[in-house]
């Protein structure tokens, strides 16, 4: 019996890393293949953003900054799309820009998935505008806090900024009713709080990758009015949106759909930690006995 136990410990200790890789791949592939979907409930930190967008009167200006790239699209894109859908549905003015060079292609995806699909009646330059990317990281935020048109002389297509109706009464970031940074690192939500929210007294909300989310909690709620953290944060915003506006059920459940594999993979990781610890303690006990 003792021999058998020892064997199991040895086997557990010597598991090839490729078997672990295979198990984690299966944990993601199988729920995706079988469309495993769970219902999602929103948390107060996400509801705070939803409620803020709800409370803004029509015509208010909302800026979304696309500060992420392809590496974090599964987490960030659903957030951006859910928020944009909400903003446009509430007849708010949507301004889109990017502090990351990889932001503009993601804006294009949003335009295709949200504006051209659900809001074809919205007019470019009147209801929404794509300002594009400018270099400078936090320097850009600092510059447009003082003078937005000094940096954004044109929109993304090279058309003079003065030609757009919705840009006429915008001088700098303080004209925005809400800034939402969808980010995945530097520069991101932290820089928007430091360089725009705090000095300009502008409400800032964030949607970030799960890696970054815990780091930003110290800003909440006085400096950061709400935060969507990772895929769960995106799914929570989608859940809040769909619950209030069921017409978006078909188009706004990207993150909710992905929470199935996410949940199973979390369970598998927990199982790895538990089994790893069982093997460790069994080994330690055996060594103590041997020494005794």
């Amino acid at each position: 019996m003792a021999e058998g136990k020892r064997d199991i410990v040895e086997v557990l200790k010597a598991i090839d890393r490729r078997i672990i890789f295979l198990l984690i791949a299966l944990a993601v592939i199988l729920p995706l293949a079988f469309h495993l979907v769970f219902s999602v409930h929103s948390s107060p930190i996400v509801e705070a953003i939803f409620d803020k967008v709800e409370s803004l009167p029509p015509g208010s200006k909302v800026l979304i900054s696309f500060d992420y790239g392809p590496s974090t699209v599964p987490e960030n894109q659903p957030m951006a799309e859910a928020v944009a859908r909400h903003v446009l549905h509430k007849d708010l003015k949507l301004y889109m820009m990017a502090v990351w060079a990889t932001g503009p292609p993601q804006t294009e995806v949003l335009i295709r998935n949200v504006i051209q699909t659900d809001f074809q009646d919205k007019v470019y330059g009147v209801d929404w505008i794509n300002l594009g990317y400018k270099a400078g990281n936090q320097g850009l935020i600092n510059a447009i806090l003082l003078d937005l048109k000094g940096m954004y002389t044109t929109d993304i297509n090279g058309t003079g900024i003065g030609e757009f109706e919705m840009m006429r009464d915008v001088d700098n970031l303080t004209d925005m009713s809400l800034i939402i940074c969808i980010g995945s690192g530097f520069p991101g939500v932290r820089e928007w709080v430091q360089f725009a929210g705090d000095p300009g007294d502008i409400p800032v909300a964030g949607g970030v990758t799960a890696v970054e989310a815990p780091l930003l909690y110290p800003y909440y709620p006085r400096q950061l009015l709400g935060l969507m953290g990772g895929l769960q944060g995106a799914a929570e915003y989608e859940a809040a949106l769909v619950s209030k506006y069921p017409q978006f059920e078909a188009s706004s459940e990207q993150a909710i759909q992905l929470m199935g594999p996410q949940t199973v993979a979390h369970l598998v990781i927990i199982a790895f930690v538990v089994v790893g610890n069982i093997a460790f303690f069994a080994e330690r006990r055996r060594e103590r006995r041997r020494k005794a």
Binding site: I24, A25, L32, T72, T209, P214, G230, L231, Q262, A265
Partner: peptide, 11 residues
């Protein structure tokens, strides 16, 4: 949260 992020990217 890091585990959560990495799994999302793989998904």
């Amino acid at each position: 949260y890091t585990v959560m992020a990495r799994i999302s990217l793989l998904t």
